[in-house]
Computed example of a mutant assay.
Amino acid sequence: MAKRPNPRAIRSTRTYTIDEAAIAMNITTSTIRSWVKAGLPLMRSRRPYLILGDALQHFLQDRATQSRTPLKADQLYCLSCKAGRAPMGMMVDCIPQTPKTARLEGLCEACGGTCNRMISRARIADFAAIFDLALNEGRQA
């Protein structure tokens, strides 16, 4: 099963049954049913109930927007606290991910768990001014 459903797998001009929508996005039908309970609109005039592709795309985009956590310039996202936190001693490792991105990794000052933040490699100098940054060029994720 997909970790995150891709709204681009849905055609906005089509209508889908619950089963068809689940197959198109490679998720279970129970996931679609839970989305209906959470507010995904259905066409209930007759059976089988239909879902407008456009409505499903907007529903997924709204959920993705709501789940984002804005971070301040001096924060990383703590995986344990599920919130933006400053790293211990403002010390972070900069780990290259792709040719254009890097990941800042540190320890949460509140719980001691791992904190991360994805950044553009072009902005490494900006974050080096905020954090005590250690570049790990040899380590690729």
Rank of each mutant, 00 (worst) to 15 (best):
A2P: 01
A2N: 09
R4D: 04
P7C: 02
A9G: 03
A9L: 08
R11A: 02
R11V: 09
S12H: 14
T13D: 11
T17W: 08
T17P: 10
T17C: 01
D19W: 14
A21T: 09
A24I: 08
T29N: 05
T31D: 05
R33I: 05
S34P: 02
K37W: 00
K37H: 11
A38R: 14
A38I: 02
P41R: 09
L42I: 09
S45V: 07
L50G: 07
I51N: 07
I51T: 03
D54C: 04
H58D: 13
H58L: 13
F59L: 00
D62A: 00
L71F: 04
K72N: 13
Q75V: 09
Q75N: 04
Q75A: 01
Y77T: 02
L79G: 06
S80I: 09
K82R: 15
K82Q: 15
A83P: 03
R85F: 05
A86M: 12
I95R: 10
Q97A: 10
T98C: 06
K100G: 00
K100L: 13
T101N: 12
T101Y: 10
L104S: 07
L104D: 05
E105C: 13
C108L: 04
E109L: 10
C111S: 07
G112P: 14
G112H: 12
G113Y: 15
C115G: 08
C115I: 06
R117Y: 01
R123W: 15
R123E: 11
F127V: 00
F127W: 02
I130Q: 02
I130P: 10
L133C: 01
L133P: 07
N136H: 15
E137T: 09
R139W: 15
R139D: 05
